[in-house]
């Protein structure tokens, strides 16, 4: 049960949030220019990093706002919380073997 620091409401239990998977995936500007394979990549393929990942969360049972999180998938430490639409802050994108 993670403790997630919502940028608007403060630290709250994971129970109040919904997971939004990999962050910084922008919808292609011209979908019709993509091949089926490229489109499928956008739709379905996501990284599965053992280490620090950038992911999205939404505070479903609170302020209902989306935001981004940098989290280590091994230690579950949350390294940063930053606004939706913002660039990730400078941090060590650690990975494990």
């Amino acid at each position: 049960m993670l403790l997630i620091d919502c940028p608007h409401c403060g630290p709250r239990a994971e129970l109040e949030f919904s997971y939004g998977h990999e962050a910084h995936i922008e919808r292609p500007k011209a979908p019709e220019a993509l091949s089926d394979a490229e489109w499928a990549d956008y739709l379905f393929l996501r990284d599965n990093t053992k280490g620090v990942i950038l992911e999205r969360w939404v505070h479903s049972h609170g302020c209902r706002r989306w935001f981004n999180v940098a989290r280590d998938t091994v230690t579950y430490e949350i390294l940063a919380v930053y606004p939706m639409g913002a660039e990730p802050p400078a941090l060590e994108r650690k990975t494990y073997v």
Partner: peptide, 10 residues
């Protein structure tokens, strides 16, 4: 004030 869950409801 705060929004949250109580048992299974908002």
């Amino acid at each position: 004030c705060a929004q949250s869950l109580l048992s299974k409801i908002d």
